[in-house]
Design a protein around this nucleic acid. Structure first.
Lengths: 280, 280
DNA sequence: CGAAAAATGGAATAAATATTCCAAAACGCG
DNA sequence: CGCGTTTTGGAATATTTATTCCATTTTTCG
């Protein structure tokens, strides 16, 4: 036949991934049936996707322990015209958005620290960063487990003091609206209401460094009595980790001395609403 | 004299910054006394530091609106041998957060309608949208005015109930930390503590539709007695508008029945911190 | 105003980097 | 085992990108 029939079998032209996500899908899709050297490329690229934007063909090839030409072929198999086109995707996808945080903080201290609008801008930014970090780091399995634990409880005891108190009150509000039996431990009058914990109940404890004595004590107490404890805290190394059956961490960005709470509240509402729905 | 005396005055060799921190310091240090074109380079680089790792000389030069040679000179003034050496610093420090935020968010949301992760994704998005809307719509004059009113108060009375209560408690916390005399009106025991309003005090009232009777009543009472009222609410047509001396509105995006509160809290902290600073 | 110094822009060159090509090796299959 | 096919490595080439150099312009200062 004529030239038109000489179709290249495994290099579909015009099928180059347009987003990082498409790229990953395509990579996963082809990795399995690839000859040895190209497989090495695929594995290395999958493990080092983030370095594509800032590396040369030679560097990546060396990392994957293949000659540069193998890496070129690999790019073409993915649908790109060559390495440069592939790199372009990652260079453009890298949308910074955040000129790093510590620098801005310094600028603010030096500059017009007094201006309320500047402060507002910083707190907005801290909130945004917190939410983005939460999106990236959220542990879906831990969340699902926490929902399961709380859904089975007769009454949910919510405890969080000082800076965590706003979160606790909001949780109490949402639980009430969703008809979930819940009790807010607010420490009013130094009454600890510890006797209120009944078999079948569960505790939702919220605390961040520096951790509140009272919150940890209540969680410990519940744990000792065999009640399940869900912790909403800042680190896996939090003192709640020992007593908790499910632990949810939220990466919260502080600005100055104050926590934005955005991420914590997002997590709290999601948890409460999920529990509310699960109980129906 | 001989060749050794021909020292280049403003290109200190071997003084290249070794970290991003050092780079920024050096940049800030020299920016002020730089001729026009080099100043343009400095300004553009300062604002786009994060793009250095993934750009070419030509791209950056175009961005700064200078010829490539000007940018080369700029690199050398900073102490680098050339652009490549400078870029190397940023390529090594380069650590993008993969998987990127929007991809990850999509994944969370696709976790099955009603699943906890999907809910979390929605609340994160609602929070982020709220913050962005606030960044765009914030009324600087109103904020500055509110700060001024509260700074002059002997005691700040914070009132906010139901869904606004978390914000009120957080404000009380921040005021306490900043040594601003403040009183939280929490409605415990249906005691309204109205008598606590003294001449020279001010009220900070927080409420959203559907507005709380008690909050509006307290604001009205204060207004009738000639005390200044600052309102943190959702619309300019809020019932607080009549009684308030300063009115701050926050555009909050709901998901389902629940408010994300991110924007409200950002505004609240900014207000509280600004007031705290102003009183010193 | 005029001379000296500094700064600038662009063209020329050097270096790095990507890409192609093809001969050699490995593989699959009758 | 031997023939056709696929895969591989590296050398050759093309392209992009960085860097230097110098004639021209602008600024500085006596």
């Amino acid at each position: 036949m004529d030239a038109a029939d000489q179709i290249l079998p495994d290099a579909p032209r015009g099928a180059a991934p347009l987003t990082v996500e498409e790229f990953r899908d395509r990579l996963a899709e082809i990795t399995d049936d690839l000859p040895r050297r190209l497989r090495q490329c695929a594995d290395f690229i999958a493990a080092n996707t983030d370095r594509i934007a800032v590396s040369t063909v030679a560097e990546l090839a060396a990392g994957a322990e293949v000659p540069p030409s193998a890496l070129m072929r690999f790019c073409q198999i993915l649908g790109f015209s060559g390495f440069s086109e592939m790199q372009k995707l990652f260079r453009e996808a890298y949308a910074p958005g955040f000129p790093d945080y510590s620098t801005r903080l310094k600028n603010l201290k030096n500059g017009g620290a007094g201006s309320p609008s500047a402060l507002l801008g910083e707190f907005i930014e801290a909130g945004r960063l917190s939410l983005e970090a939460l999106a990236k780091s959220a542990d879906e399995a831990a969340l699902a487990h926490a929902v399961q634990v709380l859904s089975g409880a007769a009454t949910v005891h919510v405890v969080g003091l000082r800076r965590a108190f706003p979160v606790a009150t909001y949780l109490a509000y949402v639980f009430e609206k969703m008809s979930v039996p819940a009790m807010l431990h607010d420490g009013v009058g130094k009454l600890d209401h510890r006797f209120a914990l009944r078999p079948g109940d569960a505790v939702l404890a919220i605390t961040f460094a520096p951790y509140s004595e009272e919150t940890i004590a209540l969680a410990q107490d519940a744990h000792d009595r065999g009640l399940p404890v869900v912790a909403l805290t800042d680190r896996l190394t939090s003192p709640l980790a020992r007593t908790a059956d499910a632990i949810l961490t939220v990466p919260e960005v502080d600005f100055g001395a104050f926590r934005s709470l955005s991420a914590t509240i997002a997590m709290a509402i999601a948890l409460a609403v999920a529990v509310g729905s699960a109980r129906d």
